[in-house]
Simulated assay, not measured.
Amino acid sequence: MALFDLDNTLLAGDSDFEWAQFLIEQGVLDQEVYEARNQAFYDQYKAGTLDIHEFLDFQLKPLARHTRSQLDAWHREFMQRKILPIVTAKGRELVKRHLQEADLVAIVTATNSFVTRPIAQEFGVEHLIATEPEQVNGEFTGKVSGTPSFREGKITRLDAWLASRGVQWGDVTESHFYSDSLNDLPLLQRVSHPVAVDPDPTLKAHAERHGWPILSLR
């Protein structure tokens, strides 16, 4: 099994951050109100101090203010303007290699599935474990559904996904997880092959202490 973080791992940037910036540029979100908060949350994430529920309240509420058709139209433009320029060629190749080896491949990300599912499809990855926005009749409510896919929550969500496939963690003979972030240490410590990808300073130091491979996809 090969698991990939998305933001700052397969992408040379952060889709969460870029989505909010895109909405600000579109005039959907007020720049003065949202830009500083968006940057503050991003800084907290990088520092390992993010309150995920506070952040999700900030991130998901705008989804509830617009119809799904309008959001989908914006997302298509977002993919072209913000995401494709930060998709790394080396990231594509790494994912392709695991798919060709018939590994079970999934992207495991804290970013919500509305933002990330089309990005996973761009990489040719069918399976996405992401934070799920609550929906009623196909429209977003602005709330989160279930456990956020963040820190230890990634393990919770991964186990639930495996169980839905009739698989337990003990059935997995080899497991890889690629990530850039200290926030992913719980899942990195669980797999048999943890790989630090363009890691932040905390993860880099941890990887060096434990002899983990350090890889750059940039």
Rank of each mutant, 00 (worst) to 15 (best):
I107H: 00
Q135N: 05
T156E: 00
T131I: 11
H98S: 09
P148T: 03
D103M: 08
V105P: 03
E134D: 10
V87K: 03
R97Y: 13
L94S: 03
T111W: 10
R97H: 11
A163N: 14
W161L: 08
Q100P: 03
L99N: 08
A89W: 11
T147C: 12
G138H: 03
V87A: 02
I155G: 00
F150Y: 15
I129N: 02
V167A: 03
V136Y: 02
T131Y: 05
E132R: 14
F150V: 08
V105Y: 00
I86E: 02
G124N: 05
G91M: 02
E93V: 07
T116Y: 07
A130T: 04
G91D: 00
R97I: 05
L99Q: 14
Q121L: 15
T88E: 06
A120Y: 05
I129C: 08
F123K: 07
D159R: 10
H127W: 08
P118F: 13
A160T: 11
L162T: 09
T147F: 05
I129K: 07
E101G: 11
T109R: 09
G91N: 00
E126Y: 13
I155N: 02
V167F: 12
V105W: 02
F150T: 12
I107Q: 02
A130C: 07
F150K: 07
I155A: 01
G138L: 04
A130E: 11
L94G: 07
A102L: 10
N112E: 14
P133M: 09
A102P: 01
N112Q: 11
K143A: 15
R151G: 05
E152F: 02
T111R: 02
S149V: 13
P118D: 04
A160G: 06
G138K: 07
G142N: 08
P148D: 00
G146N: 00
V125F: 04
E134R: 13
S113Q: 12
S145T: 03
V105F: 00
R165D: 00
A106H: 06
E101Q: 15
K154V: 13
V105E: 01
R151Y: 04
R151T: 14
R157H: 07
I119F: 01
G142I: 10
A106I: 10
V144P: 04
E126F: 12
P118W: 10
R97G: 06
Q100R: 14
G124Y: 03
L104N: 08
K90V: 10
T116G: 07
L99H: 04
F123G: 05
G146Y: 02
H127I: 04
R157S: 10
S113Y: 08
A160M: 11
K143H: 13
G124D: 01
V95C: 03
Q121R: 15
K90I: 13
R165E: 00
G153Q: 09
E139Y: 09
K143L: 12
L128Q: 12
I86A: 01
V115G: 06
A102Q: 13
R117I: 06
E122K: 06
R157L: 12
L94M: 11
I86P: 06
V108A: 06
K90A: 15
G166H: 11
T111Y: 06
T116K: 07
G153H: 09
L128Y: 10
R165H: 14
N137Y: 08
K154L: 14
V136P: 01
A163T: 04
G124E: 03
V87S: 02
I119N: 02
V95H: 00
L99F: 06
S113W: 04
